[in-house]
Computed example of a mutant assay.
Amino acid sequence: MRNSSSSLMNLKHSLKSFHELSINELYDLLRLRSEVFVVEQNCVFLDLDDKDQKCFHLLLYQENGLVAYTRIVPAGLSYEEVAIGRVVSSPAFRGKGLGRKVMELTLDACYQLFGSCDIRLGAQTYALGFYESLGFKSDGEIYDEDGIEHIEMVRKA
């Protein structure tokens, strides 16, 4: 487990394997994913895809509340490359730079965990510019996932 603090709104983050997560941390991350991906985005999909157990989880907290989260997927599990998925920020905390902060922390974590590597993600197309600003480039065609347009993007090592 790695912990760190940030001056941006007294943020703290932790990076943990699935087995290092406490029951409360697991509940918090699943609740946030459900709040955004199922309820807010109105997508009926199986979030629990049997990959969480093999992934690393970056949790970003303000005080005691989970405000943003990402899942780091080892190479070979979803894609050839290391992947970032389930990128989510709490609706109550949007517009404060948390998406950028959680992604910067996640990119650092990918390189800590796996060394210099290419990183892939499936971006919702409305967030294309955001991911491009973090060094990702579109790779492939737009596709529909659960009724939302996505495109795969890669950030070269």
Rank of each mutant, 00 (worst) to 15 (best):
A109K: 01
P74L: 02
L58S: 05
R100D: 10
Y111L: 06
Q53S: 10
L48K: 02
I72V: 07
Y69N: 09
Y69A: 08
Y111I: 05
E81W: 04
V82A: 11
A68G: 14
A83T: 02
F56N: 01
M103H: 14
C110W: 01
D52A: 03
L46K: 06
V87L: 11
D49R: 14
Q62I: 08
A83W: 04
I72N: 01
P74Y: 10
I84E: 00
F56L: 02
L59E: 07
G85T: 03
R94P: 14
E104G: 05
P91E: 06
S90Q: 05
F93D: 06
L46Q: 11
F93R: 15
C55Q: 10
M103A: 12
G97F: 05
L105C: 01
F114V: 01
C117T: 04
Q112F: 01
E63K: 15
P91I: 11
E80M: 03
L66W: 07
L107E: 11
K51C: 06
Q112S: 15
G85R: 05
G76T: 03
G95D: 15
V102Q: 04
L105W: 02
N64Y: 14
D47F: 03
V88G: 06
R86G: 10
L107H: 07
G115L: 14
L105V: 01
E104Y: 05
D50L: 11
G95V: 10
D47K: 07
E63W: 00
L58Q: 04
F45W: 02
V87S: 08
K51G: 02
C55E: 10
A109Q: 00
G97V: 09
D47N: 07
V44E: 05
L59D: 08
F56H: 02
D50R: 08
I84V: 06
L77T: 13
C110N: 03
E63G: 15
G85E: 03
A92R: 14
Y61C: 06
A68I: 12
Q53W: 02
L48A: 07
C55W: 05
L58P: 01
V102N: 08
C117L: 03
S89R: 09
Y69W: 08
E104S: 10
V67L: 05
Y111H: 07
V82R: 07
L60C: 11
E63F: 04
D47T: 04
Q62L: 04
K54C: 12
Y61Q: 09
Y79M: 03
F56Q: 01
S90C: 00
K101F: 02
S78A: 15
A75T: 05
E80D: 11
Q112H: 14
L48H: 07
L105Q: 01
D108V: 01
K96Q: 15
F56C: 03
L98R: 03
V88S: 09
F56Y: 05
R71K: 08
G85A: 06
D52H: 12
L77V: 14
P91C: 08
H57T: 13
R86H: 15
V73G: 12
C55R: 11
G95C: 13
V88T: 11
S89T: 15
N64V: 09
N64D: 09
H57V: 10
